[in-house]
Design a protein around this nucleic acid. Structure first.
Length: 142
DNA sequence: GACGTTACACATTTTACATCA
DNA sequence: CTTGATGTAAAATGTGTAACG
């Protein structure tokens, strides 16, 4: 777990970094996106996300070396890179889970309709048998 | 074996942003 | 057009734990 003082240091570094970032390019991009971000939290720049995303495609885990490298390339704190990867893995996992659920449900539904079909068939066959039985009994009684 | 350390998974909180009445 | 309510995705935090020296 992270040492408290270090964390504080990181936070203030982070803030000044964002302020600087804001000053650097608070014109050049998607008006909506990052023009709120000084002195507060974040929302990574599209460029940064793109970078991380590509790297994630290659390998969804982070060796320390690559973390530092990515941090340099994106201008983020290494810690932010690590967190981004953690969250990204989590997103990936839930997405995969949803996919698995969908295929499972699809095969369940298929099986269920087969079952229903067989159930009905069985029912009508039983009815048929009963009819035959009845008429046979009737025949015997006469 | 008990201890610190590190990295992670997972749950949860906090925030930015979109949508809409 | 604006404004507040509400929802959602993403960044960050917190907690527990496994691996390692």
């Amino acid at each position: 777990m992270v040492n408290f003082d270090q964390d504080q240091v990181q936070k203030s570094k982070m803030r000044s970094f964002l302020v600087q970032l804001d000053q650097d390019d608070n014109n050049s991009n998607d008006d909506n996106y990052n023009y709120h971000q000084s002195e507060k939290k974040r929302r990574l720049l599209p460029k940064q996300v793109e970078f991380l995303e590509k790297s994630f495609e290659v390998e969804n885990k982070l060796e320390p070396e690559r973390k530092v490298q990515l941090a340099k390339e994106t201008g983020l704190q290494p810690r932010q890179v690590a967190i981004w990867f953690q969250n990204r893995r989590a997103r990936c996992k839930t997405k995969q889970l949803e996919k698995n659920y969908d295929v499972l449900k699809a095969s369940f539904d298929k099986l269920k309709t087969q079952y229903d079909c067989l159930f009905k068939e069985n029912e009508s066959l039983r009815n048929e048998v009963n009819l035959v039985k009845k008429s046979f009994i009737h025949y015997l009684n006469i």
